[in-house]
Structure formats: C-alpha cells, structure tokens
Write a protein that binds this DNA or RNA. Structure first.
Length: 591
RNA sequence: GGCCCCGUAGCUCAGUUGGAUAGAGCAACAGCCUUCUAAGCUGUGGGCCACUGGUUCGAAUCCAGUCGGGGUCACCA
C-alpha cells in the first residue's frame, strides 16, 4: 500500500541526507488533519538532531526529496515541524478503479495454516442468557470473524457449564414445585422455564434461612444447614454417583435449556464449530496435577490437598485438588487447556471471559508455565468489562438482569414502531418488513455493544434503551441501503474513470478512508478490534452521508464525474457491508 | 490491606499506540424534504482530559504518587 511506499521513501531520504538508519516502524505516518492541505503527515522533530537544522528546513528538505522521488507525491507544505504530503488525484482515482468491485477488499487472500481457537459464550444451564452473555457472544463471534479475515484458521468453541450445584438447585425446585411443567405444557421457552425454577429455589431458600435466623441460628450455619441446600448437595452427590433418576432429570432439563439457547444463538446469528460439556471434562486435569506432584512442581499437604506455590511470582498459593481428591475450577481449566492444545495444536487459544476472572487466567498461565508446558504463552484471555445498569451490577439471583430474549423482543418492537411511524415499510411485503426490523433491531443492539472498548465496563440504560439515530448500527445500515437504492436507479453501467476528473475534498476524504480499511482489519487479535472497526464504519458512513446530502450524483451532467461518484458509492457500500459483516451485523438492501 | 482495570462535554462513548487548535452521538437551541430515502444534513452553545509532580522539542496518551469508582484475592464455578 501507499503507506509503506511513502515510509520507504522517507527512510531513503533520511538515510541519504542525514545518514539515519531507520526501519519502517520508526516512521510515524499519519493522516493529515482536515484543517490542513495534504494527505499524509510526518512530524520531523525526531530527525532535527541528525539534520542539525530547524524543523521547518528539515521538513522542507525531506519534502523536496520525496516529491522528486515519488510520482504519487505531487505537492508538499510545511507547518511548524509538520511535513504535509499531497498525493496525486490519479493515485486516488486509480485506487477507486481497481478496488471497487472487491467485496472482500482488505481481507487476507490465502488461508494460513495457523490455527486459532476461540472460546466464548460458555453459559450455565440453569438460567437464560442475559446482557452480559450478549456482550461475550458478540465479542467472541466478531473477533473470530476478524481473525478469519486475517487468514487465520479459526475454531469457535463453546464450553457449556452443565453440571454443579447451581444446576441441581433448578432441578430440585422443579421436582418440588414444578407439577411436571414442560416447555410444551406451558409454552415457556426451555431456558426460561429452568431459570424460573432456579429463581424459585433461591427465594424459598432465602425464606428458610431467614426463618432459621429468627430462631437464633447464626447466619453462616443457617446457610449451610438449610434443608434446601442440603437437598441440593445430596442431589449433586447422586448425580456424581450416576443415579439413574437424577441423570434422567438432568438430561431432560438440560435438553430444554439447549433448545432455548439454540434459539437465542440463532437469533443473534452466532454459532460454534464445537461444543464441549463440562460434565464430560470436569474430571480432566487431575492427571496433570498428579504428574506435577511427582515431578515436585506442585506440593501435596498433610491433609492430601494439592497446591501450587506461586509466592515466588508474587501471588498466593493456589489449591488444585481438594483434600478429598476432587478437582476445582482451576484443575478443570488446566485439563481442558491441554485437551484443546492436543486436539487443535492451536497457535493461539483465546478465551472470551469477563474481567472478574483476570486473576484466574494469570494463575492458569503461571501454573502451566510452572508445569513446563511451553504452549502456556499461547493462551490469551480476552477480557471484557461488565455491563452495568443504572442501578448498578446485574445480579441474576436478585432478578436484576436484562434478559437477552426480552431485550431482543423489545428492540424488534421498537424497530417496528419506528419503521411504521416513518412510513418505511409501506411498500414492503409483510414478511420482508418483519425481516427488516429484525435486522435493524439486531444491528442496533450489536453495534451498541461492540462499539465500546471491551476492556471497559459499559452502562446500559433500559429505559432510554438503544437508539436508532446517530452513532448507531441502523445509521450505517441506512447509509448502505441508501447507496444501494442509488445504484439501482443509476441504470447505466458503471465504467472505469479517467484520471483527470476533478475530485472534491469531500470525495477524497471518503476515498482516503476506504484506503485505510485494510489496515483497520489487520489490527486483529487486539481486544479492541471490533470497536475499532465499528467506529471506522461509522466515520465512513457519516462522511458519505454528508457528501450525499450536498451532491446530486444522478443529476450530474458530466459523465466522468457521475461515473466517479457512482464508483465511489459502490466501493463505500461494499466496504460498509464488509465491515459490518466482521461485527456480525447484516446490512439490508433497502430500508 | 495486596494485586488488576477504569476516570475525557450534562449523559453514552471515540481519540489511529507520544504530534498540530481534544472529537462524535444523545439531550438543548436555530435552520434544511418539488432533488437519489429526513433512521438524514448544516449551524450554535457545552472541556482544568480526576488531581499533583516527572520524562521531552511535544503528554488525554508514558512513569510515580494522591483521590474517586469497579473487580479480585474460596477446599464456588
């Protein structure tokens, strides 16, 4: 691309004139700010020591050199220590001509052999998905798409947490108070049905504990001795002992949940290449730990519990096997990590997990290193902040969660009302209209979540809900749809354009943005990449909209100009579509 | 208390890895539909980039400290 050609030329200039030995990374080429004329800017301050001249003179000298040696650079100007380089119109127009039909412009053309595994979603089977899961799912899916666009071989993995005391709680509550309710009998979505009983368990449990408190029993004791809790634990023991009735109930209720999850996943447009179930992996990892003990890398204490001593690394001791020999969360994760490494031989293993587990993953990596697995470094925790509500954190036990299905329903309803109000779907068939507001609702939701830096906690205000105007998914979808309709109306064939056409600043700004697109995609593996792409798409759409408003393309009498603008429109629409595709957002042909 | 993350307009967020006079959207106000789609466009107001010091040609960005907010330090997952 042009950037590296420019960099090379600058390196050449600095070498010849001032004897500086630089590599491409030393040159920070940035795009010229709108207030100044030019396309690319170099700050020359770092070179004045070598040039022994003022910044202004240094910049002018370099400018002369570049202008003389690069055909693409037609002019330059110097402001203070900033050298602004102006690129020829013909370069921009050629760029338009040669790339506008490429639907996957900027994508890696060949697939690498490197495998990247990415785990995301990883739900519990005792309650439906909520807004926090939505952030997780969207991030995971989007990062996977971006990695693919960069030519990686991506394996998308889901690890379902389908066992444990929390699952037993729902099962127990259903047994006690369910009266044989099924998704078929009540019409309730499976995951919601099971979630209902999880909440029910907690309210009865809370009531029981409170009653015990009034009898003067201490809180900690009450929480442990409540009959409901004891019953749940008993059920877990039965499950582990493979008691037939318990296993059957467990399978039945989990099947309900999976059906519900599948529906939600489908609606969100995400999927997986492979699904693991914790019920079949939770015992793994023990052998790794035992091996570590034998090799003296882990310590067994007098009560037979096994620990990793991480005090040398500035952390605490970490339990890996309980005194009764059973494994803990960390042990399982050690096991699954090895399992996956053996299975995929992945170059990188990405875990999309909330930032409350930052410490867990630090420890996981440290222990793997300690045990001598050289692939420990391939583990990457893609950590994201929590979604907060105006009232504070979401707590599933207290029912202060934003349910994923409810949220999507709500969004679709709003999209529908809005479309009706604006008269958007007057000439749509009812099926197409339905499709449209589903696409717009998901576009709004996905964009809302993906546009913010994953690292940061984000605030979701349900009452204000998610907007359809301004810096939103629908805005970009709208821009795309508008261009599509424009192209349709412009019945003539679009032909290549001559290099001597006039080109306005606004048009050049758009072309320059398009030119940037490949480098935007390439920032992958970076947690922020979905947010970067989202913000890029918005900038492009905004730029185009402003341009569109001011210029009539169809009425343009100059054929060359008209063609150029149509080409520009086609390229913009393609790029918007492809950028939104990386976020998992569909763009409608019309809206 | 130790460690980790965050603090930018009234609100929600960007800020291209250290560059020029800090940017959007929402909300408020004033305009623009006889044109290819107004889910749009144009304009106005709104800032001690939490605070203090340091590093240098140059800091919202890097370093140290302070203050606020969140997370985490389980024989839970």
């Amino acid at each position: 691309m042009l950037d590296s050609i420019l960099s090379q030329c600058l390196i050449e200039a600095l070498q010849q004139m001032y004897g500086l030995q630089l590599v491409e990374n030393d040159i920070s080429l940035q795009k010229t700010r709108k207030e100044f004329t030019g396309d690319f800017t170099v700050a020359v301050f770092p070179f004045v020591r070598a040039s022994k001249k003022s910044p202004e003179i240094t910049a002018a000298e370099i400018g002369e050199f570049v202008k003389a040696n690069l055909a693409e650079v037609v002019e330059f100007n110097v402001i203070k220590g900033f050298l602004n380089l102006e690129i020829s119109k013909s370069y921009w127009l050629n760029f338009l001509n040669s790339h506008q039909q490429e639907i996957d412009f900027g994508f890696a053309k060949t697939e690498e052999t490197e495998v990247v595994m990415i785990e995301y979603s990883s739900p519990n089977t005792n309650k439906p998905l909520h807004l926090g899961h939505v952030r997780n799912n969207l991030l995971g899916w989007s990062v996977a798409q971006i990695l693919k666009a960069n030519g990686k071989k991506v394996v998308k993995v889901n690890l379902v947490n389908d066992r444990g005391i929390h699952i037993c709680k729902s099962m127990l509550a259903w047994q006690k108070w369910g009266n044989g309710e099924t998704p078929q009998s009540s019409g309730l979505k499976g995951d919601h049905l099971v979630g209902k009983y999880y909440v029910l368990f907690n309210s009865y449990y809370l009531a029981e504990v409170n009653e015990m408190l009034t009898k003067g029993i201490e809180k900690e004791v009450a929480e442990k001795q409540a009959t409901l809790m004891l019953a749940a634990q008993e059920m877990l023991r039965k499950w582990e002992a493979k008691d037939l009735a318990t296993i059957q109930l467990w399978e039945t209720m989990n099947a309900w949940v999976y059906e519900g999850f599948d529906q939600t996943y489908r609606r969100m447009g995400i999927d997986f290449d492979k699904t693991y179930y914790e019920s079949s992996t939770y015992l793994s990892g023990k052998s790794i730990v035992e091996k570590g003990v034998v090799e003296g890398k882990l310590q067994r204490k007098a009560d037979q519990s096994v620990w990793a001593d991480l005090t040398a690394e500035g952390l605490d001791e970490k339990l890996l096997l309980r005194s009764d020999g059973t494994s803990v969360y960390m042990t399982q994760d050690l096991g699954t990590a090895q399992l996956r490494h053996d299975e995929f031989n992945a170059h990188q293993m990405i875990y999309v997990v909330g930032n409350e587990q930052n410490y867990h993953f630090d420890v996981l990596k440290l222990i793997l290193q300690k045990l001598g697995y050289n692939w420990a470094g391939s583990i990457h925790h893609l950590s994201y902040g929590m979604v907060e509500l105006p009232a504070g954190k979401m707590k599933s036990r207290e029912g202060t969660v934003v349910d994923a299905d409810d949220l999507i329903d709500e969004m679709e309803k709003t999209a529908f009302e809005k479309a009706l109000e604006l008269g958007k779907i007057d000439d749509f068939e009812s099926e197409e209209a339905k499709q449209l507001y589903a696409v717009i609702a998901m576009g709004a939701l996905k964009y809302f979540i993906l546009k913010v830096d994953p690292q940061k906690n984000m605030l979701f205000n349900p009452s204000e809900s998610i907007d359809f105007n301004g810096h939103t998914g629908p805005f970009i979808q709208y821009t795309h749809a508008r261009i599509k309709s424009l192209i349709k109306k412009a019945s003539d064939d679009i032909c290549p354009i001559a290099a001597h056409i006039e080109i306005l600043t606004k048009e050049k700004d758009i072309i320059r943005l398009l030119h940037e697109y490949p480098s935007v995609i390439k920032i992958a593996g970076d947690n922020r990449s979905p947010a970067l792409i989202a913000n890029y798409a918005f900038e492009l759409a905004k730029e185009y909209n402003a341009f569109y408003q001011e210029i009539s393309i169809l009425k343009e009498t100059n054929d060359g100009l008209r063609n150029m603008r149509l080409l520009l429109s086609v390229f913009t629409a393609n790029t918007l579509k492809s950028a939104m595709g990386l976020l998992g957002i569909e763009v409608p042909e019309r809206m």
